[in-house]
Design a protein around this nucleic acid. Structure first.
Lengths: 243, 243
DNA sequence: CGTCCCGTTGATCCCTATCAAATGTAGTGG
DNA sequence: CCACTACATTTGATAGGGATCAACGGGACG
């Protein structure tokens, strides 16, 4: 029972929205605090999904390993996000590993309590459905990108998404607020670190980004958006044709 | 209120599992029957998601259109599947179109009744979460394939999945039990109809499949599984080395 | 101050998209 | 029943985007 946690912070999380104060207290009663150092895993792919989590602070990445050892980054977990809810979807094991990319703090409960939570508060299950629905939507967007777009568009989109979720304004531009490598971006977009490096170099030359070791700053968001939208094969501009 | 529907058929659907007979009756009371001819849409991408559905008979395909007109097949809907539940995930519009690829029959309810259903039966929401969880799992598997595998593997996998879901045994082999084109498979796997055609031709020469206009029969499932697993870059066989 | 990890950059190759055209098949209407 | 049409499929030729192979450079951390 973590006593010194900021209750209002937790109260505003999507998952717990519209829970009564009493219900919230009772839930927090059984929460366990997880402190993760960079590189630590909250859980690993294949393990029995016996706990679920809410991230309070820091950033995690969710990675899937293929049978022949290649990795795919499924998503990044931001503060406020729920993760590790495999059991709620009746999947016995975690489908991916979740690793801290910086020092992070999470709350966690035994998966067995999920049903209690949903029984206690009808909104809980509905909120979860919404969350998973959002993830499904994101996954479909990604499938569409992988199926129809070129590497440069995909990388541009991936970076824009990161900026959107975890961007912090600086004098130079918007920086992605946690350490991220070329390899990570390659694993998000289905390409290689070499290609990502070349793209970032090219963009740097054009003044769109600044980037260094595990660090990316976007200077010209608009231009990046244009890249993400592709080569504009033929947008027939109706100039001044009469209707 | 469709009176002549086989109740036991509906009773066994995942979504309605463990509903009381009374609850089921009350739900069926408000169901509307949809008859769809080949090519008909249950709904179209972008429309307000005002109804949800259960497929009783036939096959539908769910397609997303990109801004520049390319199509992606999201999945096929099989008898017993729920579809069109965007609203339950709090998405106001359908994210894709759902088209009949053969004559089909579905039940449908107004999205507004979803909440009544879940309130009436606590298992309902949980079942839905499981369903969406399965779809998320499938989507991630597909992302992994698109990111790390070659076209031949992906096409092999796609066909195996179709065989699994909708295969019917025939003297020649297992046939995919609804009309499907090279283009459809290309849109499932992120490639072109040309490449799919070449692959199927090659497989036909090797005796793995028989295929014609909108028709695919798998003769040698095992060989196809081997293809799906890839070039086996280096499975170091420990022959008889001592440990 | 050395070592590890991350990033950069060149050279080469090949898978697969693209372009192009012919063939085959179901359906339709006269 | 056959000609006509629309759509599916096949197959060849070509080119190019990116993966792969290879090597070096550079910053961070112990």
């Amino acid at each position: 029972m973590p006593s010194n946690l900021n209750r209002s912070l937790i109260k505003n999380l999507d998952l717990f929205k519209s829970l009564s104060d009493a219900a919230l207290d009772s839930i927090l009663e059984t929460a366990q605090v997880y402190r993760l150092l960079t590189g630590d895993a909250a859980f690993r792919q294949g393990e029995v999904a016996d706990r679920f989590f809410v991230l309070l602070h820091g950033h995690l990445k969710v990675v899937q390993v293929t049978p022949d050892g290649e990795q795919v980054v499924v998503r990044y977990v931001n503060p406020g996000d729920v993760f590790g809810i495999a059991r709620a979807m009746r999947r016995p094991n975690y489908p991916a590993s979740t690793l801290a990319v910086q020092e992070s703090l999470a709350l966690s409960w035994p998966s067995t309590e999920w049903d209690d939570f949903t029984a206690t508060n009808p909104h809980f299950a509905s909120n979860a459905l919404q969350t998973v629905g959002q993830r499904l939507h994101d996954a479909h967007a990604r499938i569409q990108e992988l199926s129809t777009e070129e590497v440069e568009q995909r990388v541009a989109r991936a970076i824009l998404r990161l900026v959107d979720q975890s961007g912090r304004q600086t004098p130079e531009g918007i920086v992605i607020d946690f350490p991220i490598t070329r390899q990570d971006i390659a694993e998000m977009t289905g390409t290689t670190l070499h290609t990502v490096s070349r793209l970032l170099s090219a963009w740097k030359d054009r003044g769109l980004v600044i980037s260094g070791r595990k660090r990316i700053v976007v200077c010209a968001v608009d231009n990046l958006i244009r890249l993400a939208e592709g080569p504009h094969t033929s947008t027939p501009q109706p100039t001044d044709a009469k209707v």
